[in-house]
Design a protein around this nucleic acid. Sequence first.
DNA 1: CGGGGTGTTGAAGCCTGTCAACAATTGTGG
DNA 2: CCACAATTGTTGACAGGCTTCAACACCCCG
Lengths: 248, 248
Amino acid sequence: MENYLFRRLSTAAALDEDDRRAVEQLHERVGLFEPKKEIIGYGERPECLHLMMQGWAARYKSLPNGTRQIVGFLIPGDFCGLNMQILGTMDHSIVALSRCEVASISAKQFDKLTVRLARTLWWASLVDEAVLREWLLNIGRRESYEAAAHLLCELYCRLEQVGLVDNGQIILPLTQEGLGDALGITAIHTNRVLQRLRREGLITFKSGTLTIHDFDALCEAGGFDPEYLHLKGPQVGATATSAFHFLE
Amino acid sequence: MENYLFRRLSTAAALDEDDRRAVEQLHERVGLFEPKKEIIGYGERPECLHLMMQGWAARYKSLPNGTRQIVGFLIPGDFCGLNMQILGTMDHSIVALSRCEVASISAKQFDKLTVRLARTLWWASLVDEAVLREWLLNIGRRESYEAAAHLLCELYCRLEQVGLVDNGQIILPLTQEGLGDALGITAIHTNRVLQRLRREGLITFKSGTLTIHDFDALCEAGGFDPEYLHLKGPQVGATATSAFHFLE
DNA sequence: CGGGGTGTTGAAGCCTGTCAACAATTGTGG
DNA sequence: CCACAATTGTTGACAGGCTTCAACACCCCG
């Protein structure tokens, strides 16, 4: 079985065979979730860490009036509750978008990995933060058409990093409503935006599969620059000789 | 001199006298920045860590068309470039909003603190992430009036945590344009939103000083719940009914 | 005193939301 | 395999929030 986590971490640092073993032995039990099932709910205190093995999930926050805002997508190789181990209670919820497999990692197991790869794991968590900032720009300052294009580019790149792109196609188990919840717009408007992207020959999005016909044009439409995803890991050189070598 | 960092970290964990000394001896040099001066720019690779000692600053990202989105405010006790030590290059910029003092912390000094307080520092960084998620909800799904009220509540609470609230008043060195940049709306619309908040007797906001006349009403108007700020630090106790309990 | 930044106001228009209806697709049970 | 129900996608008309543009008042500071 593919190990998406290892694959992702590999882009952040040069990992060796021992590291690979450490990552692969990480999970003990795997849980299955059907679409729309809650993986972790608001206010919970997860007692163990969760890792996405297969499928899609979304983090979201909701308002009393029933609207919700998706604040992040989880794909294979992403941690679910890394943060909550330290923060305590969940300040948002996580829901399965597709059928998905989620591994549980005991605190003990995780500690072992942390000792070995603390810096790399921290890196992964900071990339998540960078993504949040870009989303803020996306929702706050881009028009919905650009924002949609930008989001699709981002998802494409993230999936590519873990090897889940197949010939310009990705699995994207989202309804138009779901996409709208991530973009801060209504389902109906999402429909119109997608129509335009389709009409202009940039994408096809049908039954959970997104095909990007012209990636460069889509980037152009969304003003997308993958820089913030830090896909190539921490660029070494220059200064930054580990303020954190204590972690190694 | 007040040590805002120590004050903030104290809410996250029980710190002793040794911890206090470690925090207080952290900075060596202090830099001064005038309003609108860039503290760290997009694409830079800061060689040492920065800590806000005094004054306000903002993180922002901008678009080719000239608009910008503020993605976070920095107040005394906040780190500026904690993340970039690991990520490498800055994916956003930081600008001074008021005259402010920024301490530089050498990698060596910071290591010493980290060894002692790693978990506490990690906690602080995760709170920042939680704030970003709430902003996404704010901008994506709240109306501008609610969003503005919500943001003001948040800033009030954050300042209160480090002891910078004076009788319902806080220093908020922002123009209406700046507030708008944080809310994802135009300066003109910000003006109208503020007028309404004022008209309804909730606030007064004049020459860089915000007075909150009715905090509860302002919370109500913005749907504000300080939970996500994790002001009381990690709550212990009460384990969760995790979605995985069937596995135990 | 003058000038730049900031706040305020009004009118017009666009982007996006709302409502309502219907089509298409998916999933389910007989 | 079909029939049915439920979900999802699509369309149009209309309303509303927010933006844009343009003008003017205010305030701080040299």
